[in-house]
Amino acid sequence: MPTSPFIFEADAANFSDLLQRSREVPVLVDFWASWCAPCQMLMPVLAKLAEEYQGKFLLVKVNTDEQPEIAQAFGVRSLPTLMLFKDGQPVDSLLGAQPESTLRQMLDRYIEKPSDRLREEARKARERGALAEARKLIEEALALAPNAIELKLDLARILFEEGDYAAMDALLRSLPPSPEVKALQGMLAFARIAEQAPPRQKLEAEVRAHPENSEARYQLGARMALEGDFEGALENFLELLKRDPAYRDRAKEAMLAIFERLGGQGELVNRYRMRMFTALH
């Protein structure tokens, strides 16, 4: 194998130091042996990728006949075994000789791209409340990675916080269905309800005085959901579902939207999912 600044032979003395390099770039460890035919097939493919990626990952080769203690430490039982390390920890693995396309897919999941840096800067800007800056950074990232769904979801969240509901709606409609998209569509629906609603305190007073006012209760639930008071929102939508057949479908959809927003699991979701089921049946 030609010498390369991106390919290393590991032994007991240098292996730990090589793994520490994974705090800078991913480190792909190839466990191999000279008698292993699939290992020999894989070697030139790995070497080609190491040269092509030019230091975006490092290839570390472990001859398991010469370094059995390293293989044993990581539970290697078949060859070839590939383990990818990031931040000093194994994050992915492959067994057997793999096609180049599969190797690329694994590497690309963990190699930082220019759009990743822009996304991280956008996250920090959003946390500071600098929404215009965050939007600009995400749009720059999308110019580099126009098909990245996670970037489009980030942009949808920023549009939501900016109150640009029309642009958010158009963006979400262009994305394939997913739990994240459903959750954002649910929050968008709440925002549009709340746009036309009185302040929360006024709605609370109205619901206390007139519990039968279904529209006020519906608007109150939407406002609570937007403010993160998910239990209060669920309680009002559940009461609406039980009280008013005309609002039954809307109340159910609102509760399902909150379940999606909460990741579809957890004590609150489980409790109100059961209560909703009971009320519906």
Rank of each mutant, 00 (worst) to 15 (best):
M1T: 14
M1P: 05
I7C: 05
F8H: 13
D11K: 02
A12S: 14
A13N: 15
S16Q: 14
D17R: 15
L19N: 02
R21M: 11
V25A: 12
P26A: 03
L28H: 08
V29T: 02
V29N: 00
D30E: 03
W32D: 03
W32R: 01
W32H: 11
A33H: 01
A33Y: 03
S34W: 08
W35F: 08
W35L: 06
C36H: 06
A37I: 15
C39N: 06
M43R: 09
P44K: 04
P44E: 07
V45A: 02
V45P: 03
L46T: 05
A47R: 09
Y53V: 11
Q54W: 09
G55D: 01
K56R: 15
K56G: 05
L58W: 13
V60N: 08
V60C: 10
T64G: 02
D65T: 14
D65F: 03
E66S: 11
P68A: 11
P68N: 05
S78Y: 04
L79F: 14
T81Q: 09
L82A: 08
M83R: 12
M83Q: 13
L84A: 10
D87V: 05
P90N: 01
D92N: 08
L95Y: 03
G96H: 09
A97F: 04
Q98H: 07
E100C: 03
E100G: 02
Q105T: 13
M106Y: 05
D108T: 11
Y110I: 13
Y110C: 10
Y110D: 10
I111Q: 04
E112P: 02
S115D: 08
S115A: 14
S115V: 04
S115W: 01
D116R: 00
R117I: 15
R119A: 15
R126Q: 13
R126I: 13
R128P: 00
A130M: 12
L131W: 10
R135S: 11
K136I: 12
I138R: 00
E140D: 12
E140L: 07
L142Q: 00
A143G: 12
L144D: 01
A145Y: 02
P146F: 10
N147P: 04
E150K: 10
L155P: 06
L155F: 00
A156M: 05
R157V: 14
I158E: 00
L159K: 01
F160G: 08
E162R: 02
E162M: 04
M168W: 06
M168A: 07
A170W: 08
L171H: 00
R173F: 06
L175K: 03
L175V: 08
L184G: 09
A189R: 13
E195V: 11
A197D: 03
Q201V: 10
Q201H: 12
K202Y: 04
K202G: 06
R208Q: 13
P211W: 02
E212H: 07
R217H: 02
Y218S: 10
Q219E: 14
L220C: 09
R223Y: 04
A225C: 05
L226T: 03
D229S: 10
F230I: 13
F230V: 14
E231W: 09
G232K: 09
E235H: 13
L238Y: 00
L238F: 05
L238A: 03
L240F: 06
L241R: 02
K242G: 05
D244S: 14
D244Y: 07
Y247C: 03
D249Y: 10
A254K: 01
I258A: 09
G264W: 07
E267D: 15
V269M: 06
R271A: 15
R271V: 15
R275A: 13
T278I: 10
H281E: 09
H281Q: 11
